[in-house]
Design a protein around this nucleic acid. Structure first.
Lengths: 254, 254
DNA sequence: AAAGATATTGAAAGATTTTGCAAGAAATCA
DNA sequence: TGATTTCTTGCAAAATCTTTCAATATCTTT
């Protein structure tokens, strides 16, 4: 087997099990431990996986909202439902900011029919909507954050500071009663700019994010107008959010 | 079996299995390993597949992306040659502006090895290079011009006004002794901004553009440092350009 | 159709890369 | 601490790549 193929299979295996020992991988790949070790060193250099003594683990757990892949089938039905429900909140001919992340990507898939103007810093979203002749797509500038296909940095922040939108559709790494948090500092900067540019703030948060906290704090709950989630969201937290005046929409899987 | 047929079958096989070894392909095609190796080299040059040690893999089949440029096979070999020759003009770790257009797209395919910083307003180029971890890709902001996947408009122009690059790689709709011209007013604006931001101006112009004029005038010839073209370029015009002090590189088809 | 030119193919030799192994160093665990 | 596991390093074997060359096939020209 070739090195690249082996590495891809290692990555796929890690996506399933999170942790794997060298012996385990060696046996699975039918290669010596040395070879697996070298593969992991290469993969660790590129990011994505991290070495541990005796094995490796995935750097970004699979539930991380921002490890983007259009093929990501994790909780696909739920994300699809959230996407559809969220798109319904948008009225025709509005200007909408769409964040990066798989959940927001699914929202974008339903936005074309609305014919609004869409502003995004996500390459996948831009690609998705570029072919449409019903809506105008504005891309923020910025540096490509490689693995995720997100535009970040000063140019991106500046791009959003220049516009006003009717609504912003965001996602995040975690939500608790203390507020919203996310995993990458660069993304936080972007999202702050999006929040500042929009009249209505909509968060699309699948149920696995409830009660979790990511490394960086984004904002308080009171800036949020609407949260769209799926059935798995814990009832007590949903109740508490509603008591705070936030409209919480639980999207039903079709 | 014909070379083309073999290559097509290799591509089809790779579409199924994603990775294939040389031996595997050799057996499947009933051809020697040497021949398969040569086929793969050619195919890798054109894109679509990538070599690995001992085999080949399908280049990321990102279904949703803008790959229209790659599919444009009009004068493919010439554009490919121009792309390779043009990329050789870039020195390691330079900042390069890459324009939209199919010819520039082929230049971008050869830029990864150079490891520079790339600035572009082309979504296809951005997508192409997004996966690379060797170079940093900066995307100008702007509105997506649908058919071409180019970012245009004030945000885009502004993005370029903020940067300085070592070189700009541009294409155009036509070149005569009176100057360079292009077809869309919006693109002209962008290109003016690119010209202003760069120290060295390189135009990639396939031979069919020589002696032609498009609707809008972009610039005089004297802002140009280098022109890269293919063998079909009329000799008298090439001579005249050289007399004006422009370095004209005629790329040989491999 | 024949002769020469050109292109393609398969094979072989030498260079390069990858792989597996083993010994000593470093880290982990009881 | 001592015992065990894992890591690093160096090295030789195997696989693969590059280059070259002769044989074959294809194209051009007459």
């Amino acid at each position: 087997m070739q090195a690249e193929e082996r590495q891809k299979r290692i990555e796929e295996h890690l996506a399933k099990v999170e942790f794997a020992s060298l012996d385990e991988l060696s046996e699975l790949m039918d290669a010596s431990v040395s070879t697996v070790r070298r593969d992991l060193d290469i993969m660790a250099g590129k990011g994505g996986v991290a070495r541990t003594h005796g094995g490796a683990r995935l750097v970004n757990p699979k539930s991380d909202e921002f490890t983007f892949s259009a093929r990501d089938t994790h909780q696909l039905a739920e994300k699809e439902a959230i996407g559809r429900a969220c798109a319904e909140l948008i009225e025709p001919n509005q200007t909408v900011i769409v964040d990066a992340g798989t959940t927001c990507y699914h929202v974008a898939r339903h936005l074309e029919a609305k014919g609004p103007q869409v502003v995004t810093n996500s390459l996948p979203v831009a690609n998705l909507l570029a072919g449409s002749n019903k809506l105008e797509v504005v891309v923020s500038g910025g540096v490509i954050y490689p693995r995720l296909g997100v535009l970040v940095g000063p140019l991106a922040v500046e791009g959003f500071s220049k516009i006003r939108a009717d609504a912003a559709i965001l996602s995040c790494g975690g939500i608790t009663l203390e507020g919203i948090s996310n995993s990458h500092g660069l993304l936080i900067e972007m999202q702050r700019a999006m929040l500042a540019a929009s009249r209505k703030i909509i968060f699309c948060i699948d149920s696995t994010k409830f009660g979790r906290q990511s490394i960086t704090r984004l904002c308080d709950l009171d800036v949020i107008d609407v949260i769209v989630t799926d059935k798995g969201a814990p009832a007590d937290l949903v109740r508490a959010l509603r008591k705070k005046g936030i409209e919480v929409i639980v999207a039903a899987v079709a």
